[in-house]
Design a protein around this nucleic acid. Sequence first.
RNA 1: GCCCGGAUGGCGGAAUUGGUAGACGCGCGGGACUUAAAAUCCCGUGUUCAGUAAUGAACGUGCCGGUUCGAUGCCGGCUCCGGGUACCA
Length: 921
Amino acid sequence: MEYNFKELEQKHRENWQKNNIYEVKEDKNKPKFYVLDMFPYPSGAGLHVGHPLGYIASDIYSRYKRLKGYNVLHPMGFDAFGLPAEQYAVQTGQHPAITAEINIKRYKEQLSKIGFSYDWSREVRTSDPNYYKWTQWTFLQMFHHWFNNKTQKAESIETLISEFKKNGNTQVNAACNDIPLFEAAVWNGMEDDEKDTILMNYRIAYRANTKVNWCPELGTVLANDEVKDGVSERGGYTVIQKDMMQWQLRVTAYAKRLLTGLDTLDWSDSLKEMQRNWIGRSEGAEMFFEIKDEDDKILVFTTRPDTIFGATFMVLAPESELVDKLTKVENTEEVDNYVKRAKNRTERERMADAENITGVFTGSYAVNPFTGKDIPIWVADYVLGGYGTGAIMAVPAHDSRDYAFAKQFNIEIIPVVEGGNIEKESYDAKTGKMINSDFLNGLDVKDAVINMIKEIETRHLGKRKVNYRLRDAIFSRQRYWGEPFPIYYKDGKTIPLKENELPLTLPEINDYKPTETGEPPLKRAKEWLYDGKYKYELSTMPGFAGSSAYYLRYMDPQNDKELVSKEANEYWQDVDLYIGGTEHAVGHLIYSRFWNKFLFDLGLIVKDEPFKKLVNQGMIQGRSNFVYRIKNSNKFVSYNLKQDFEVTEIHVDVNIVHNDILDIEAFKKWRSEYEDAEFILEDDGKYHCGYAVEKMSKSKYNVVNPDDIIEEYGADTLRLYEMFLGPLEQSKPWDTNGIEGVYRFLNKFWRLFFNNDGNFNLSDEEPTKEEQKIIHTLIKKVGEDIERFSFNTTVAAYMVCANDLAKLKCRKRDVLKNFLIVLSPFAPHISEELWQLSGNSGFVIDSGFPKFNAAYLIEDTLKYPVAFNGKTRFTLELPKDTEKAEIEKIVLSDERTKKRLEGKGIKKIIVVPGRMVNIVI
RNA sequence: GCCCGGAUGGCGGAAUUGGUAGACGCGCGGGACUUAAAAUCCCGUGUUCAGUAAUGAACGUGCCGGUUCGAUGCCGGCUCCGGGUACCA
């Protein structure tokens, strides 16, 4: 019987589905295990061979855990809101819901062929009103809560109101916007809309004026993580800074918890580091500098309070409110021009221009509170409005940017830390002894910082302060294809919908472009009003809204009363294993953690962190092939002969190249222009192509479609080969050439179950000791390797085992049963077929992982490598329990040792029992 | 610039704790079976040198240096590649 993968794979997939074997329910008798993939955004292009890598890995782990007796939750769904479907809608007028539906269908088709063990009954789609009802609901909760810094928790806005009634806001320590203090009497005397305005400054979901990344081409704002190098991540369009009224989420309130929480997670160091950098905690002091002859003060943040004695000037960001106040009449024109120019520049221009040092003097002076000296106040764009206080004290001797500025404008440079040579450059290191610094002189930098902060606090100049780089998340998008805000506006007031009014569904419109006046597309929905009268919020939520809590929804996807029921959440708790790409390191993975912590504060879920362990699969790169056309001709020269000609390198479709040999006939048919192409071949009569590893993309003709691989080799081969390519977390190129190897292995494995006449035939004989050793080595290795996500070596172990058993012509039922079970996480179809042919009942996934028996692996003898000066020269087989002295004796009496020792004395001999022998001569 | 990874045969990669470097697979070379091909099976395959040969020797994990009886792995200094991030005070 042949290994007919096509037939058997389809048969079993249908059978699995018919029997719902991947559906799971809460089961208190079994330990739970939750394995999650980052759900895909279904694009029009479909899957290429790089996409399923992580899905295959998580599927293997899920199946393995299930074999080990766990109740495994392994769901899949679709992130269906988003920009590409909307842009397609703008171009063609096709409703994005239709585009999304088509793409999802295609994705599901492709995914289903790979044989994943998803519980599709739990599928979620972010664009489904029954799903986004809960996205809107969570938003409302954020609207109704504030963050108490004292308890480090979100609390109901009602607690805040009753506190205002009693004491005003004087004793409240909240994560909030800048707001003046007021007493209870003032609060109680306010009109309702005044109160609303005040409260808006405290809400976790709040609406405020802020500087945003505005992308004119896309007609929408973007979050910081959606902007890369000053252009939009999607599309690469210019992004400018603009002030706008926007909904925002107070992620910054959670900065501390987001940071400390990282220590409890089993994530890669690089990923944690990325999050730490993004959160950007820096410790220092905030302090005031008095203005000379004025009543005003400048508040600055510094991480180097120890260097205040070297602060010889101050710099304001062009955006700073102080600029106008502090600019002297005679400097007004110059400063205004400078500020105007700075404001009109895009992020990108500012970055490109970073080496150009610019700035203008305001005419005002501040007083250095420690030296008493007057120091000039400048405006320069190297100080950012959005970080710290938008103003700095500049210490040119110990900050490279201040140094460059001082050199440019001839400002005094006073060294206050011993170390560098400030003639040439600033000395930025935080080590050395203080000088020129009065009471700090002689102290180390570390101690000087502590002493200085103490002094600043005693003299009431300022206080210790921790600053974060993290910004609140801008939550409005001026687009159509997203979740509507459950908010309407009435008489200037912002009113949330009630829970029973959810979901607020997206209305139909006839044109998906922004309006002529630049308002969001929802403006076109004329009849879309609350109670027929009041305007809804017209912007929609960003992409990360729907993906921030989908892992909770999978626990209880059909619940229409709650986001997730208490029972379901208490059972499934959190994600034990999350697999996905690193591109979400600072976007989705920060927002999700924030979202989760918020829901945790409300007591709705039991875990503070959503993703216990996270594994980032590496990118699968493309492997492109090239042909070389001789210039001004239609003649192509083979790779190794091309140096004799002037040639153009041309990408050629990898699907018509095999082992870098071009299929010339297929090439001629590929493009009409190549129909009459001529070729200069090598001695072997073949055309050899060049190759390069680059990103997989259509334009490089190196895209490989998993459907084609499955058609030719089957899903099991695809699954094994994707894992065999290399370590999961590493980037590696896809090269279809190697796939024959795993395909051969599966055929070999198949043949183990058949006799010479090709009939299925297993023997019920007792396995020999040798056979037991082979299979138990495999059982041990597979368990260990899967646990540490070393899937490429697992595949190697299967091959070794199959080779060994084939050599022994072993057809023992006992042995092969274990083999097919341990293979089943990687190759579920073939395993299922052989499981059933072997006469077993049920499905292989419920068979239970075989128990490893160490007794079969015990050896009577050990092979000792004998090394001379650390280089192994021969090996010696000795009984396992040979004593150290005995080993030494045997080694020394060996002929080969004697030969090596001729004329030389032994300096030392090292014997490590059970390991090796090393002789130093 | 800063932070985090990485570099091993012609290629993808293995070596789990400092103990036989190159598992497994691809490719390549040779052979068996076959009228032939495919499939399958067997042998060889890091480099260099010596030898008719069996075999033997030297070198070898990006580079330079160190620790150690012993280093792909640890330490110091570089080079190159990938990723992240940036006038963040």
